[in-house]
Amino acid sequence: MNKKIFVCEPYLNGNETKYVMDAVSTGWISSSGAYVTKFEEAFSGYCGVKHGIAVCNGTVALHLALAALGIGKGDEVIIPSFTMIATAFAVCYVGAMPVFVDADKDTWNIDVNKIEEKITPRTKAIIPVHVFGNPCDMDAITEIAKKHNLFIVEDAAEAHGATYKGRKVGSFSEVACFSFFANKNVTTGEGGMCVTDDDNYAKLCRYYKNVCFNPDGPRDYLHNDIGFNYRMSNIHAAIGLAQTEKADEYKKMRMNNHALYKKYLEGVDGVVFQKDEKDSENVGWMNTIVLDTDKYGRTRDELIVQLKENGVDTRLLFKSMSIQPALKKYGCDCSGKYPVTDWLSENGFYLPSASNLPEEDIKGICDIIKDFAR
């Protein structure tokens, strides 16, 4: 190919400049500006829940959610072994212990059939991650959580607008968490949000994110609890509001990209796509394939080199939580076997996935993959 195609670029095609310039020209650039509230209301409404609490990134959103739920030292939280390490780090931040569950071979989400075997008297919550925009089996997870009296904290960082049985992700848990990093379907550059239907959890999230200033009284600089400075700026929120206004449009673009990759790679032996969760709408945040080397005839790494030589940027997938040195040092039980996670990590990678990626580029990328097959 004659040009560089990056793995993902932000698509800013709405009122971003208008809203940011308004924030700058009026001097409201900190976390006190009106765009923060407007963004919180717009995005939580988009998810179908009452409250949104804007924060500075998706990782701290997870930390804030766990803190608001009272999870701490001595507690255990079940997470997928196949996830971005931020999911595990957030559990560590509150002093709790991450406990890993392998991925499902088809959907690549947490294997719901293996969750209960990891539950102990210390388990307090499950964090399902909607991997690559594919909603988890929330009926099964909700049933398990109710049976064992556990909280659910959705990690929806990759799944803006995805639906499960007609409901948006983010509406199935006590608190759900989103990221607005530059590669997300809805972006603020850097940013995140907790969303919840629970008035008390929303109040606690707002309390802790603002260094535990008294939310109901004057700012007297007396702090009763250890808090965090996790506020989002008005400038970032201005971008987020503009993005939320066009969230469904961007979602459709990502889903169309996903469909095009499947169309142009149909029938290529050894190219494996993620399967959609039943009764769900996968928003195709990242277009990911796994190579069956025996059928494709080349290794994942050989194909990545070939794509790079043709100007196509790619990214490797997450490494298993069970092999992370930081988590071993922290004291996590990393002795288990996670074969599906290992298979994904060793054989999978991202293809370019920007919302506005032209069809001709997708076709060109797929042609390289087809032509390189042995």
Rank of each mutant, 00 (worst) to 15 (best):
D367P: 04
K3F: 15
P218E: 14
N287T: 07
D139F: 05
T293D: 13
D269V: 12
V153P: 02
N113I: 11
L351S: 06
V340T: 04
N185Q: 11
P121N: 02
L222E: 14
C332H: 10
A54F: 14
E281Q: 08
S179Q: 03
N113D: 15
S335N: 11
K275C: 08
N185D: 09
P218Y: 14
Y261R: 05
H63V: 15
A238E: 11
D106G: 09
K168Y: 10
A373V: 15
S25D: 10
N214H: 10
I323K: 08
G267N: 09
R206P: 06
D367S: 08
N347C: 02
G227Q: 08
D102Q: 04
T188S: 11
V7F: 12
K50G: 09
K146S: 13
L316W: 14
K124C: 03
L241H: 04
K3Y: 15
Y208M: 03
C56L: 08
L303R: 02
V99R: 00
K329E: 15
D294H: 05
E360G: 00
Y264M: 13
H51P: 07
L66E: 07
I78C: 03
S179R: 00
E346N: 02
G95T: 01
D342Q: 06
G45K: 05
I53V: 14
P135A: 10
A125C: 02
S320I: 13
I365H: 01
C334Y: 11
Y230K: 00
S179P: 04
Y338W: 12
G227E: 09
N229I: 01
G297M: 03
A159E: 09
D75N: 05
P352A: 11
V20R: 03
A140V: 09
G192F: 09
C136W: 02
L64N: 09
A176W: 02
D137F: 01
A103R: 03
W28V: 10
A326M: 09
K146Y: 15
W285K: 00
I144A: 07
G331S: 13
K252P: 06
N57C: 01
I71M: 06
L327Q: 02
V24Q: 08
D371G: 11
N229Y: 04
W343V: 04
V91C: 02
N15M: 13
L62I: 04
V312T: 07
D225V: 01
M232Q: 09
G364L: 11
P128L: 00
V94K: 00
F228P: 02
K105C: 12
K209R: 07
S353G: 04
N200E: 14
P128H: 00
L265P: 03
K4I: 15
V20F: 10
R219N: 07
V112Q: 01
T341A: 12
P80K: 00
